[in-house]
Nucleic acid binder design. Structure first.
Lengths: 95, 95
DNA sequence: TTAACTAGGTTTATAATATAAACTACTTTA
DNA sequence: TAAAGTAGTTTATATTATAAACCTAGTTAA
């Protein structure tokens, strides 16, 4: 792409972008909460969280709240930077 | 998606978004020109132009310039509206 | 006390998408 | 007239997104 910067394919995905957007505002959120806010299915969410986590865009912590498992996600500085770069690249496209 | 509006999948594609962005600024452009500006391969561009055309987001006209075939594209009002809606929806995500 | 149900996920199979390689048809150049 | 170039299209493949199916633990109802 000569005139248009590449859009980070990890962020150029509706659900992953929603997850990142949410985490950027909250700094930390639980799986179930993200699921409700994004309207995603658990399976899809699980897969996308995994991808973001493997890229070190988010940090994932698994613990127990009482007897129930809880997965907590938070954005990393790498993730914040990637998000900012993505938004800047997008401006090439949407003016 | 409850908190996040759906992003028109036809526009949420790097190349198609680049094509639309280009046409929005120019009102009309030839295949070869779009190819250069976007850095896309001819095959990929042909497919994506076809999709945008079938959705009536762009209009495609085929003619001859001397002995060479020329494909000219321009954005439609439907396309302009779709683009605007896409940008507005995106704002949910990128603030 | 075991069968059915719920919560909180993960894994896997499938559908959709993007992309490039291969091809067509015609033209120009050597 | 053969080789290379132009302007694309078609098709095969790789990637991605998504939901269905599954798993594990705990909980209630019979």
């Amino acid at each position: 792409m000569s005139d248009f910067k590449n859009l980070d394919p990890l962020l150029h995905s509706q659900l992953r972008l929603a997850i990142m957007s949410l985490l950027l505002g909250l700094q930390s959120a639980e799986f179930v909460f993200i699921k409700e806010k994004t309207g995603a299915t658990a399976g899809n969410l699980s897969v996308q969280i995994d991808k973001l986590s493997k890229a070190d865009y988010i940090k994932v912590e698994k613990a127990f709240k009482g007897k129930k498992p809880v997965t907590t996600c938070s954005i990393t500085t790498t993730g914040v930077e990637a998000f900012e770069n993505y938004v800047n690249a997008l401006k090439n496209y949407i003016g």
